[in-house]
Amino acid sequence: MIRVLQAAPGVEVGRLPTGPDADGPPGSVEGWDVLAVDTVDAASRPLVEEACALGLPVVVGADLPVRFTPAPDATIVSGAASGAGLAAALAISMLPPSAEPLKARLAWTVAGRPLRAGRAVTFPEPVGSLWAGWGENPLPWPDVACCPAPTDSPWKAVRVDLEFHGAEGGGSLVHGVSDEGRFLDAVCFGSAILAAARGAYPRGAGGPGDPDGAFVRLAREAGMQVARFVAA
């Protein structure tokens, strides 16, 4: 993730130790442009609250804890390093301008024991086909089927099936990503931080997908490959 950030010009990366081996308080985020944390936990929460109070965007790699309620005027991007976040962001970026989504299916891999039954999802190789379960919809769209697919592979993948209609008629697209898990997490986390630094996210809590597709564009610039599925 640091490499992704260092590849962008004009980015200065600082670290505030918050772990149990840190000496003293973690310091202040005053004067920074973005705060990024892996998770919102007891150690990072004071920094997150300070950043929200200062109006800085906060990017969280994991999902927000259930009991954490951010201030309504804060900008918080959660799930920045998650398959669900990437799938939702990819779906937003796939939707043509002025088109409306009709139906979507988001599928992503999660770490775990592969299922023996469920909904079959064909991801790009080398992940291939997996059984998926049922997940929560990370998009504010109706009629979205969400399919988390457990895998014990170090590779991660997402797949988005999208049907839409617009002024120029309707259409359907199937896009997917498959890459080494740690690389994909780092690229997504770093890209969400850069997108936040460039003001891509509106106020409120949401995923890494932004209306202008800056997150996906930055991730592709950082090396994420997107593929298109063509049915036989």
Binding site: G118, S129, Q225
Partner: peptide
């Protein structure tokens, strides 16, 4: 016995940036 999920017939093509 593990039954491999059925594969949707088709091919993936990289989208050139």
């Amino acid at each position: 016995a593990y039954t491999k999920p059925p594969t949707t017939p088709g091919t993936w093509h990289p989208i050139v940036r």
